[in-house]
Design a protein around this nucleic acid. Structure first.
Lengths: 120, 120
DNA sequence: CATGAAGTACGAAGGTCCTCGTACAAGACG
DNA sequence: CGTCTTGTACGAGGACCTTCGTACTTCATG
């Protein structure tokens, strides 16, 4: 299942798509899920690397692993092991180079969704 | 003004979500499909209302109807009958008010996808 | 009226996705 | 070494999505 992607990482290695292999439909699909949208929003808010356990999600660990994998395989986040934890970080530079303004527009729309909806 | 184009349509009526009911995940999901992305791109390029038959799609009429319905129910386009034809138009103002910059970012990413992909 | 064009409704097949439970692997630590 | 934490792998169930074919409606026009 691992097509020779082993490098010099301490633990296991993870497959990430090259910047040139990131596709817009896949990114949009990855961000079209509420759970993943909240993950990405949390990552963008901290601007740091977070382990999976730092998120409070309404799903189980298995599902969490699944969502992180979808985000990673779409090219939205980068994951790296550090001990038993796995740190997650947004691929802001890659996304900005490929789709300028897209991530910010989505994060803005997600973080401030009420301005045009009601007076709240 | 076009006769009877404001309140009651001459033929059948179509359900459109209110601006306040447009949801980001649904919009992203609607735009995550290559067929629908091409539809939206074509609509944005002409900045006019187009009938369904104006698009050359690799799918049948039934599938085309389905995709237009997904876009309409997500709040991305507005549809109106005119005779036997059905005109489609982007809901740019609504989308821009709810998700500033989102549509432009997606259209830019879709229309000019090769600039940052050089060397691949 | 008859014909044709544009689009819809309905149902079906095949695939994908989200969620979960359970069993397991890798590292930290006493 | 034994145990705990963190996360994975695998499979299953149920829902949803995409695509199509066929029959149908609606409207324009000769």
């Amino acid at each position: 299942m691992t097509p020779g992607a082993s490098t010099a990482l301490p633990g296991r290695a993870l497959d990430h798509p090259d910047r040139a292999d990131i596709r817009l439909p896949q990114v949009l699909h990855a961000l079209a899920d509420p759970v993943r949208l909240s993950l990405v929003s949390a990552l963008a808010a901290t601007a740091a690397e977070l382990p999976c356990s730092a998120f409070e999600l309404p799903v189980t660990k298995s599902t969490c692993t699944h969502h992180f994998r979808v985000l990673r395989e779409a090219g939205v986040i980068r994951q790296a092991y550090r001990g038993t934890a796995k740190l997650n970080a947004l691929r802001r530079a890659d996304l900005e180079a490929l789709f300028p303004g897209l991530l910010d527009a989505i994060l803005t729309a997600y973080t401030a969704p009420a301005q045009a909806r009601r007076g709240a």
